Amino acid sequence: MTQPATDAAGKFDTSRANEYARQSRIALAGYDACHDLSACMLAASLGQSRPANVLVVGAGGTAQEIIAMAALEPDWHFTAVDPSGPMLDAATEHLLANDLLSRTHVHLGHVEDLPADASFDAATLIGVLHHLGGDEAKQQILRSIQARLKPGAPLIVAGNHYAYASQPLLLQAWSQRWRQQGATADEVQAKLGKILQGADPPHSEAAVQALLHGAGFGDATRFFSSLFWSAWLTCKLSQATRFA
C-alpha cells in the first residue's frame, strides 16, 4: 500500500523537528559533507557564479542544503518546500540565523502546490524518498519536480537505499554509530525504531535509477555514500532525448 505524503509528513512532529539537527548528524555519518558536496555538484553542473533559482524539496529541519549552496553561490535563490510545519519552522530559524530568508521563498506544502509553469534551474531532494511508501509515491514526487525543471536541469537525490533487513551488517553498524555517540542499548533500539518507522527505501541503486528514468531523468552519478545512504546527481531529459 502506498503511504500518502501527508502520513510521511506526520512523522515529523515538533518533538522530532526539535531534535532533528543533532539526530540527523548521528544517523548519517557525513551529513554536512553530503550537503557540501551536493552544492559542489550543482555548481559544477550549472557553471560557477551563474544566477540560478533552485527548488529545495524536503527543506525542513536544518535547511543545510540551502546554507551550503548559498555559501558557495551568492547569486542563487531558493524555493524551500516541506509539508511538515514544525520541520519548516525549524528550517526557517536556521535560514534566519544565516541571513538567508531574503534569498529563500518558504512554502508549506507539496511540490504539486507550486505553479505548474514554475521553471527552476536545479533542484534537490535530500532525505525524502525513503519516507514515501511505495514506488507510486516516489514516482509522483519525482515527476512533480521534473515538470518544474528546465530541460537539462540537474537534480540531486539523496537518501537511504536497500531494504534495511537485507543488510544486517550495515544495520548493526548503524546501531554502533549511535553507541559511539554515547547512546545506551535501550536508547539505540528506540532511535532505530523511530528511524525505521514507516520507512520504505528503494531496495537498490538500480531501483533508484529506475525511478529516475521513469520520471524523465537521465542516468545518475553517485558522488557520496555512508552505510545505507547515497547521493546522486541526475539531469532532466529533454522530450526529444526521452522519446528517442
Results as ranks from 00 to 15, higher is better:
Gln197Met: 13
Leu46Gln: 00
His213Pro: 00
Ala206Leu: 08
His35Tyr: 12
Val208Glu: 12
Pro51Tyr: 02
Trp232Thr: 05
Leu108Lys: 06
Phe120Gly: 07
Glu136Ala: 10
Ala123His: 07
Arg16Trp: 06
His35Phe: 11
Pro154Leu: 05
Asp99Thr: 10
Leu55Met: 04
Ile26Lys: 01
Ala122Asp: 02
Phe243Gln: 11
Val188Lys: 00
Leu142Lys: 09
Gly133Phe: 12
Ala210Asn: 03
Lys138Ala: 04
Ala244Met: 13
Asp200Val: 06
Leu149Asp: 15
Gly10Lys: 13
Tyr31Asn: 09
Leu108Trp: 01
Ala70Phe: 11
Val157Asp: 05
Gln239Glu: 11
Phe12Ser: 13
Leu114Thr: 05
Thr62Glu: 12
Leu212Ser: 00
His94Cys: 08
Gly214Arg: 03
Ala68Trp: 05
Lys194His: 09
Pro83Tyr: 09
Trp229Val: 12
Leu233Gln: 15
Thr221Glu: 10
Gly198Ile: 14
Trp229Met: 11
Lys236Trp: 10
Tyr164Ile: 04
Ser238Thr: 15
Ser225Trp: 00
Gly30Asn: 08
Arg242Met: 13
Ile141Ser: 02
Thr184Ala: 09
Pro151Thr: 12
Val106Pro: 07
Ala158Trp: 14
Ala207Asp: 15
Leu211Val: 08
Ser15Trp: 03
Pro151Gly: 11
Thr2His: 03
Arg148His: 05
Leu101Asn: 01
Asn160Ile: 07
Leu237Pro: 06
Ile145Val: 14
Glu205Trp: 08
Phe243Asn: 11
Ala68His: 08
Asn18Ala: 13
Gly134Ala: 04
Pro201His: 03
Gly109Val: 06
Phe228Trp: 08
Ala80Met: 01
Ser238Met: 11
Leu72Ser: 05
Leu125Gly: 06
Ala240Gly: 13
Lys194Cys: 06
Gln172Met: 11
Gln23Ser: 14
Arg242Lys: 09
Leu169Gln: 09
Ala71Pro: 02
Gly216Asn: 11
Arg143Tyr: 04
Lys194Trp: 10
Arg177Tyr: 08
Ala183Ser: 04
Val188Gly: 01
Ala71Cys: 04
Glu19Lys: 07
Ala68Met: 10
Gly159Asp: 09
Arg242Asn: 10
Ser238Ile: 14
Trp174Leu: 08
Gly60Tyr: 00
Asp89Trp: 01
Ile67Thr: 09
Gly159Ile: 05
Ala5Trp: 03
Ser15Cys: 03
Asp135Pro: 09
Val128Asn: 01
Ala210Glu: 03
Asn18Met: 09
His77Pro: 09
Gln180Val: 00
Gly133Leu: 10
Tyr162Asp: 12
Met69Ala: 15
Gln48Ala: 05
Ala21Val: 15
Leu211Gly: 02
Leu100Phe: 07
Leu237Phe: 04
Leu149Val: 08
Pro4Arg: 11
Leu28Tyr: 14
Asp99Ile: 04
Leu114Asp: 06
Ser230Val: 05
Leu227Gly: 07
Leu114Ser: 03
Leu171Lys: 06
Ala215Met: 13
Gln64Gly: 07
Gly58Leu: 00
Val111Gln: 04
Ala199His: 02
Leu212Asp: 02
Val157Gly: 12
Gly127Ser: 03
His161Ala: 12
Ala147Cys: 04
Ala9Phe: 03
Pro74Phe: 02
Glu112Thr: 08
Arg222Met: 15
Ala118Asn: 07
